[in-house]
Amino acid sequence: MYIKCDCMHVDSSLFCADGPDLPQIDVTPSSGTEGGFSALEKGNISLMCQASSNPASQYYWFYNNSHIYSRPQLTIIKILRMQTGNYTCQAKNSYLNTTSTKTTTLTVYLPVSKPYVLLSDSSPVEGMSLWMRCVVEKGTGPVNYSWEQESQSGLLTTPASWNNSLVNVTSVTRNHSGWYRCLARNAVNQQRSEHTWLDVLCKWVDSYPFYSMC
């Protein structure tokens, strides 16, 4: 990269003006995403810009190409999702009239709320169909889901194929009885639901003499 440089003698010393180098942007609190950073809605976020330059750089911040601030550190209090976008730092060497810029993308997320589980039937009979839904009322997508089942014997499993908010079971068995909860996560947080009990009932043969197939 070519850097403009200008030197002169000042008070028997050699003064060389150069820069600015490519700025570095540091975000606090830091949570990196692909191509940028993320922040929690209504949280505080600070963007610090630094670029080596002689004399020292002057700094200008732009949001989606509009100038918004003229200091090295840009702090946003209680940031909102509407403030998602591209933040550009421009460093300027006023002596050489040279500039250098760096842009980062800041995505503001609403954390997922605590989910809860809905069952189409909490006491289905063996062989019946059933659906379970993990409900999240708030949260910026995409939201990913997983499920946990704790059997009556206390065995905890995480069904690998249950990775959606809606799970359909075409034919329940007694093995499906147990405690269920779901986990919902997005880019900034995750939440687990409370446990929900599913009790699969025995199927009785509808002929005399009546008997259970369990």
Score class of each variant (00 low, 15 high):
149 Q>Y: 03
39 A>W: 06
125 V>R: 09
177 S>D: 12
13 S>Y: 10
65 N>R: 14
205 V>K: 06
115 P>Y: 13
159 P>N: 14
41 E>S: 11
150 E>K: 01
118 L>K: 14
23 P>M: 09
92 K>Q: 11
55 P>W: 05
193 S>I: 09
16 C>S: 07
77 I>M: 02
62 F>Q: 08
120 S>F: 10
136 V>I: 11
183 L>W: 07
129 S>W: 13
166 L>S: 08
113 S>M: 09
127 G>R: 14
36 G>F: 12
101 T>P: 00
144 N>Q: 14
11 D>T: 04
144 N>M: 13
78 K>T: 10
86 N>R: 14
214 C>R: 09
192 R>P: 04
41 E>W: 01
185 R>T: 07
48 M>N: 15
164 N>Q: 15
13 S>V: 03
130 L>E: 08
198 L>V: 04
197 W>Q: 15
30 S>P: 05
133 R>G: 13
71 R>E: 10
94 S>G: 03
189 N>Y: 05
182 C>Y: 09
38 S>E: 15
158 T>E: 06
203 K>D: 00
133 R>S: 15
3 I>C: 01
157 T>N: 13
73 Q>D: 12
188 V>A: 12
141 G>C: 13
69 Y>V: 00
207 S>H: 03
115 P>Q: 07
150 E>H: 00
177 S>V: 02
146 S>F: 02
140 T>K: 13
43 G>A: 09
138 K>L: 15
135 V>F: 05
199 D>L: 06
60 Y>S: 13
47 L>R: 00
46 S>V: 07
89 C>T: 12
57 S>E: 02
37 F>D: 00
201 L>I: 00
66 S>M: 11
158 T>F: 01
53 S>E: 03
183 L>T: 07
193 S>F: 09
116 Y>R: 06
92 K>L: 12
94 S>H: 07
170 T>G: 13
46 S>C: 10
88 T>I: 03
48 M>Y: 12
159 P>Y: 05
148 E>Y: 04
139 G>W: 04
64 N>A: 09
114 K>M: 13
131 W>T: 09
192 R>I: 00
16 C>P: 01
99 T>N: 08
141 G>T: 12
70 S>Y: 06
158 T>I: 05
80 L>Q: 14
168 N>H: 13
149 Q>R: 14
212 S>K: 07
58 Q>M: 04
